[in-house]
């Protein structure tokens, strides 16, 4: 089963005409597929001449956003798919993640890491995304989610 990408990949906020994404991946929303896709992104950034510090930063942000899609948007839906489109623009990596899963609770990313006692075992994802990205914009579309992320390169 193939689902059409939810967001037009060269659409609004993703650069002008002809600015095709440098990398587009469509994969199943499962942990080992996420891992494989992150490796592809890391390889792409290596080939673009970016160093390990920058790659690590991009990889953490994308890992957290993708894990949220797997664990929350597609909870109980193992057949869900994710589209990742990445382009480099100026000193930024601009990444759009689209899925057909459930919306974020309250229609927005969690405002703050939930206080769950002195030693939380979760709730770190958005802390890391916010700390390491220049911009994170979430939109609920008909039947899916779209998350635009911008991460400084170098």
């Amino acid at each position: 089963m193939t689902a059409r990408p939810l967001c037009p990949l060269a659409g609004a906020g993703q650069g002008g005409p002809g600015a095709a994404p440098a990398l587009v991946l469509d994969f199943a929303a499962r942990p080992f597929e996420v891992r494989r896709s992150l490796a592809t992104v890391a390889r792409h950034l290596t080939e673009a001449g970016l160093g390990p510090e920058t790659r690590g930063r991009v990889e953490i942000v994308l890992a957290e956003a993708l894990n949220n899609i797997v664990e929350h948007a597609y909870r109980g839906q193992p057949a869900g798919r994710v589209t990742l489109a990445l382009r480099r623009e100026g000193g930024l990596a601009r990444v759009r993640l689209c899925d057909h899963g459930a919306p974020m609770p309250d229609g927005a990313p969690p405002a703050r890491a939930p206080a769950r006692g002195t030693l939380p075992e979760g709730g770190f994802g958005w802390t890391l995304i916010r700390a390491l990205s220049a911009r994170a914009a979430y939109r609920r579309m008909t039947g899916g989610n779209c998350l635009d992320l911008e991460i400084a390169l170098g």
């Binding site: 690590g56 990889e59 953490i60 890992a63 957290e64 894990n67 030693l119 939380p120 075992e121 979760g122 770190f124 994802g125 890391l128």
Partner: peptide, 16 residues
């Protein structure tokens, strides 16, 4: 080389 928030949560869980 890489640990995400799930891995971090697991290390914290081991401590607990």
């Amino acid at each position: 080389g890489f640990l995400d928030s799930s891995g971090l949560g697991a290390v914290v869980a081991v401590l607990k």
